[in-house]
Design a protein around this nucleic acid. Structure first.
Length: 154
DNA sequence: GCCAACGTTGGC
DNA sequence: GCCAACGTTGGC
């Protein structure tokens, strides 16, 4: 089992939006490294953090579960879509997505600012300088430590 | 809105 | 295969 951190801009799709629909596909990935993570490393049942990026208070706001294998991202085929990519076709898809299920919102969201204050977490990928991957794996120790932070009294 | 950092593109 | 130019990400 692997643990994941998945970023999205809440203006586009937030943990609240996922809560409303229950399950949704995580589409729009247009980075080969992230695609390969989804294809090669993710498994059904893997837990994931929902991270809000590019917003007022960036941080981890909720928990999800991966509920599908990687499969073709059909939004790449649609010229109407923002993330349209003509190189990808139904016959030969380039981009993949997975389905994610809402688990719960965190009682105490763990902000990026707080993540940076804990020496235990300095190795986390998203805290590394210049990291831009929107989906990153994290080790159980980091996962568990963050859950501890989220469970504390505010 | 700014801008540093990174990935991608494409000419050569 | 190099690398400059460009586009995107995402914190601040």
């Amino acid at each position: 089992m692997k643990y994941w951190l998945m970023k999205n801009e809440p203006d586009d799709f937030s943990i609240d939006d996922l809560e409303k629909v229950g399950i949704d596909h995580w589409d729009g990935i247009r980075n080969y490294q992230v695609r390969n993570f989804m294809r090669d490393e993710m498994s059904i049942g893997d837990p994931a953090f929902f991270y809000h990026s590019n917003c007022k208070v960036p941080g981890i706001y909720g928990l999800m579960e991966i509920v599908s294998e990687a499969y073709p991202d059909h939004t790449a085929w649609n010229p109407e879509e923002h993330y349209h990519d003509p190189r990808s076709t139904p016959e030969s898809p380039v981009w993949l997505m997975v389905d994610v299920k809402f688990v719960r919102k965190l009682d105490n969201p763990v902000t990026l600012r707080e993540l940076r204050t804990h020496p235990e977490l300095t190795e986390m990928r998203i805290l590394q300088r210049g990291n831009r991957l929107s989906v990153t794996p994290l080790c159980f120790e980091h996962w568990n430590f963050i859950l501890g932070l989220a469970g504390r009294e505010a």
